[in-house]
Design a protein around this nucleic acid. Structure first.
Length: 725
DNA sequence: AGCACGCCGACT
DNA sequence: GTCGGCGTGCTC
């Protein structure tokens, strides 16, 4: 009797054995419906065998083999097994979490027929000049349809709103659809720019790669990394390959999606990210799996898409922390992508203006190939000048120095845009009583509640708890409560009073909460209907505002001497990124940083646009302190309501680790950076080693012991290569 | 993770 | 005498 070994979505490190009926054929990677407990669930067959360790009477039979979707390719299964093993996450949960939700159920799914669009008889005689001008997208669609039959990809390349406009045209009876077999795609791109010498060298190097090779594309902001990607895509597509392009966050994917669609209008491109509806995500996944989609643009979850013709992987902004998943399978999509490229024997390009120290170190030591773009692609666009404003002796009750206000005023007079960057939303990070010193502590967390003045509420940014702003101090009754520190709302107010005639726009998670708002705001900025932008890191990424010439950074200092050893690395990346927003057009840009430590090496490197010297400084520090990338880490996190229970669990975990006496360094049991969140005490235990191998060996012995520990009211997890503490 | 079974307190 | 609290143990 044949046995199928099935991965199921349960937190157990094992596979489950099922009999296969004589008439059933199944291959590895196929979905099956099996009885489990008293339910029926969907699992993935990971192995076939003739034998089993279990008593035959305990084994049930596979109910049904699901054949609506082709089996997952062996390469993907191998990748998932590796992730389960490396990140110490149950194999079934790893495998199932890589699938779109629809495929985790037993409802059959199918790839929808590809449609093409053409003018109906009515549409052909339609007088386009009779249509109102404001229906611009409809007009563009109709014009395009006069010469051609259009595919869905071509429709989408016309405008982000084209699918909606097309629907109206179909309803009006002007456009008809035909089901068409996937036809020949063309892989040429629009608007070929002349590459700079540096760009050409980078493109050539990747094109000449034979099989697996990791490239670190280190290109300063504005150096035209995207153009390098476009040329690489072009080459790979011509040769019949699929390209996986990973990007950090969903905010940016719609823009990038439209950008790549318009550059490759006749190529099938799909996006994959958590912002898609379940149906869309499934369809896009199926298109990728079928090899029909040639460009796959997605966030970290896209790294697990089956891609039969995968020929190149690009990870854009590879230093970005959002490639690391912070719950469940705590994987780094960048690292998984490298492993995948290696397994598939294809090149991978990591792109960044400020590479992660890990990648930079690997490039320096020769494991990766370093490709540098040191000049801006447009001869007109120079790097912005960066200047620090020393505020160590200044008292700034409103958060902004005179120099900064002057610069903002001048920029306003020139009719140019400026950006004020503070990484703190709300009005003020804390409210204080001037009489007794009471602070607005969150009752459930170790943090402070942030003052939001627009709706007069105090909010905890960690657990979401909120209350009305009290009329008087809750402890002494004093009516004089003062906001302490500055947030985006406060700066917005201050700037509006200083420059009553200026159009100030605040962009943060609060002001863009409603769907579509951020898009509308972006348009407003593009149309130059805004003079001063105030915002958080949302504004730092990837936007190209041509009239923006001044960037002001308010209070970056707390990251300089933070307990988190990666804080200054992150700050440099963030400041370089936000500084890169200035002067992207033909006007020179200026960056002003308000700091009490203008001589700090970080600011020196930033002023000189010298990533290399900064990275060298950090690498020296890290080597001396024994931190990554010179060591490898695993973090055991635990949390629970009873402090004593959590510490007790951790102490036991620690003594087991010590008893193993392996080649690892075990640190103490310490509170997390946020020691209490939503009434849960959070505690960490760090273990590190000189080699990945020793660390992995250690965790393999340690984890079964952790699982055997009594952990009644405790949630714990292992985080390999942790980024956050 | 679910979802059972199982053994002790307040209700018709 | 039963309904239901959530403690512990299993799922091929």
């Amino acid at each position: 009797m044949q046995i199928a070994r099935v991965a199921l979505d349960v937190p157990l490190a094992t596979l489950f054995d099922y009999f296969l009926a004589e008439n059933m054929t199944v291959v590895e990677g196929q979905r099956v419906l099996v009885p489990f407990g008293r339910k029926q669930v969907v699992g993935i067959v990971l192995a076939l065998s003739d034998t089993t360790e279990l008593a035959p009477e305990r084994i049930k039979a596979v109910e049904q083999v699901l054949e609506d979707v082709p089996p997952l390719p062996a390469e993907l299964l191998k990748l998932l097994k590796f992730c389960s093993d490396y990140y110490h996450h149950p194999v079934g949960m790893t495998v199932l979490s890589a699938l779109p939700t629809r495929l985790r159920g037993c409802q059959p799914v199918s790839l929808k027929q590809v449609l093409s669009y053409h003018l109906s008889l009515n549409g052909q005689v339609l007088d386009l000049t009779s249509l109102p001008k404001r229906k611009a997208v409809q007009l563009r669609l109709l014009t395009a349809l006069q010469n051609n039959v259009l595919s869905t990809a071509q429709v989408r390349a016309i405008s982000p709103t084209a699918p909606a406009a097309l629907k109206l045209l179909i309803e009006a009876g002007w456009v008809e659809t035909t089901a068409e077999h996937a036809k020949q795609q063309k892989f040429s791109f629009n608007e070929a720019h002349q590459l700079t010498q540096e760009q050409q060298t980078a493109v050539d190097a990747v094109n000449q790669a034979l099989g697996y090779q990791t490239f670190l594309l280190h290109g300063i902001t504005g150096s035209g990394k995207t153009e390098v990607y476009v040329h690489l895509l072009h080459q790979v597509l011509q040769r019949g390959g699929q390209v996986l392009l990973l990007v950090p966050e969903i905010n940016l994917t719609p823009q990038l999606e439209y950008y790549f669609r318009s550059r490759f209008p006749d190529t099938e491109l799909v996006s994959l990210h958590s912002g898609l509806s379940e149906g869309e995500r499934t369809q896009n996944w199926l298109l990728a799996q079928a090899g029909q989609a040639r460009i796959i643009l997605g966030t970290r979850l896209a790294v697990f898409t089956p891609l039969p013709e995968l020929a190149l992987i690009i990870v854009d902004e590879e230093h970005d922390a959002s490639f690391k998943q912070q719950d469940g399978l705590r994987y780094s999509a960048r690292d998984v992508a490298i492993f995948r490229a290696n397994g598939r024997g294809v090149p991978i390009v990591l792109g960044s203006a400020t590479p992660s120290l890990e990648s930079y170190y690997n490039a320096r030591s020769g494991r990766y190939t370093l490709l540098k773009l040191g000049q801006r692609a447009s001869a007109l666009a120079q790097l912005p000048s960066v200047r620090c404003i020393n505020i160590s002796n200044a008292l700034l009750p409103e958060g902004i120095s005179k120099e900064l206000l002057t610069a903002l005023g001048e920029c306003l007079l020139r009719g140019e845009q400026s950006l004020v960057f503070i990484n703190r939303r709300g009005y003020a990070p804390v409210l204080m009583c001037t009489a007794c010193g009471w602070l607005s502590d969150c009752p459930h967390c170790a943090g402070k509640m942030v003052l939001h003045l627009n709706d007069r509420r105090l909010r905890c940014h960690h657990c979401g708890y909120q209350t009305r702003v009290p009329y008087g101090c809750p402890t002494c009754g004093n009516a004089d409560l003062q906001p302490v520190g500055i947030g985006t709302q406060r700066i917005e107010t201050v700037l509006q009073t200083h420059f009553p005639e200026a159009r100030v726009l605040r962009v943060d998670r609060d002001s863009t909460r409603n769907k579509g708002t951020w898009n509308a705001m972006r348009q407003q900025i593009q149309d130059e209907a805004v003079d001063i932008l105030v915002g958080t890191q949302m504004l730092a990424k990837g936007h190209d505002f041509h009239n923006l010439t001044l960037v002001c950074v308010l209070n970056p200092d707390n990251a300089l001497y933070s307990a988190d050893f990666r804080a200054s690395e992150k700050l440099f990346a963030q400041l370089a990124q936000v500084a890169g927003r200035a002067g992207r057009g033909d006007k020179p840009g200026e960056v002003l940083v308000q700091t009490s430590f203008p001589d700090h090496p970080l600011f020196r490197a930033l002023r000189e646009h010298d990533y290399d010297s900064w990275a060298a400084t950090l690498l020296t520090e890290r080597e001396q302190a024994g931190f990554p990338p010179f060591v490898f880490q695993v973090l055991l996190r635990a949390e629970g309501k009873q402090e004593e229970e959590v510490y007790n669990f951790m102490q036991q975990a620690r003594s087991h680790a010590a008893d193993l006496a392996m080649q690892v360094e075990i640190y103490g049991v310490v509170p997390a950076a946020m020691p209490r969140r939503a009434n849960h005490i959070r505690v960490h235990l760090l273990v590190q080693s000189d080699t990945r191998k020793n660390l992995q060996q250690f965790v393999r012995s340690w984890r079964p012991q952790l699982e055997a520990l009594p952990a009644r009211n405790i949630r714990w997890s292992l985080d390999i290569d942790p980024l956050e503490f």
